[in-house]
């Protein structure tokens, strides 16, 4: 398992780790530098110009002058989408992309169990995510005092924990879907769509109470964003971790039973859709 962990962390995901850590870290520094400017603005005047629907959709925008409101509006509010798309791709590719490239066949012909392989890669995935989160956390925390954002390092850490957990959940969902859907690309796409859909649904639920019963069953309903600075709901975190564990166990069970494909063996396609598309011009010609 540790061989696979090291290989995935230091080779397969090295580029993503470096790129996303540096990128998000620089972004965090930039947004932190703008904080004093935002505080000097007449925020109430700005709020008066914003439509009520927008204020409801981005509910923390009204408290943008507070550290938690600023953190949420400019970072944590939309990180589940940006990083959600990243983890959707990573989770979906964790095993099945290698199978599609044909490299999994030879790896699994070596003395490593499927559980160890998946376990090592999952651990590497979680570590990569933790490193990206960690760099961003440091970028917010270390210079925060100089820009007048008076939060302790623990207060800064809490929303990152919430973000990390929800991203793990989306990554695990992508992994599970990659075991069920015909390709890793499709699994990543479906997970990414679900993450974006969940984000929109969550915002719309602030506008329309009738969506509340639906949104309750979605992960982002239990994501506090920047508001976690005031205290993390550990019950919600535990719930998300539990769902993540269930998704991982299901993915492991499917991988354990999986026929490792080579050259398209055992794959499936959406029935007849592609055939219909291909046939159409021929039928027209006839």
């Amino acid at each position: 398992m540790w061989v696979e962990f090291g290989q995935t962390l230091l080779r397969r995901m090295r580029g993503q780790t470096l790129g996303w850590s540096i990128g998000l870290g620089l972004y965090a520094l930039m947004m932190l530098a703008f904080y004093p400017t935002v505080l000097e603005m007449d925020l109430q005047l700005h709020m008066d110009f914003l439509p009520d629907e927008l204020l409801a959709f981005f509910d923390t925008i009204a408290i943008i002058g507070t550290p938690q409101g600023y953190l949420d509006t400019y970072f944590f509010n939309y990180m589940p989408i940006i990083l959600g798309i990243l983890v959707a791709g990573m989770g979906a590719s964790l095993i099945v992309a290698d199978e599609e490239r044909g490299t999994l066949d030879l790896i699994l012909a070596h003395p490593i169990s499927r559980m160890a392989l998946l376990g090592g890669r999952l651990l590497a995935f979680a570590t990569v995510l933790a490193v990206i989160m960690g760099v961003s956390w440091l970028a917010w925390t270390l210079p925060a005092g100089q820009f007048g954002m008076d939060l302790t390092w623990i207060e800064f850490l809490l929303p990152f924990i919430g973000l990390f957990v929800v991203l793990l959940l989306f990554g695990s969902l992508a992994l599970l879907l990659s075991m069920l859907l015909p390709s890793s690309r499709m699994a990543g796409m479906v997970t990414g769509t679900l993450a974006v859909g969940n984000y929109l649904l969550n915002g719309l639920a602030n506008l329309d109470e009738r969506l509340e019963p639906v949104v309750r069953f979605t992960p982002l309903h239990y994501y506090q964003g920047g508001m976690a600075v005031e205290g993390l709901n550990w019950g919600w975190v535990a719930g998300q971790v539990a769902v993540t564990v269930v998704l991982i166990v299901a993915a492991m069970a499917l991988f354990q039973q999986r026929e490792i494909r080579v050259g398209g063996e055992q794959s499936w396609r959406w029935p007849k859709l592609t055939r219909l598309v291909r046939r159409a011009p021929v039928e027209q010609a006839e």
Binding site: V3, E4, Q7, R11, R12, R101, G102, T103, D105, L106, I107, A109, H110, P111, I112, V262, G263
Partner: peptide
């Protein structure tokens, strides 16, 4: 084992690949 359709990780050198397989063993 040598698969009929041999596919190796493209960004590795031959030595990287062999050392990785050695680690798995």
């Amino acid at each position: 084992y040598l698969p009929g359709e041999l596919n190796l990780e493209q960004n590795m050198t031959g030595e990287d690949a062999l050392r990785y397989f050695n680690q798995l063993r």
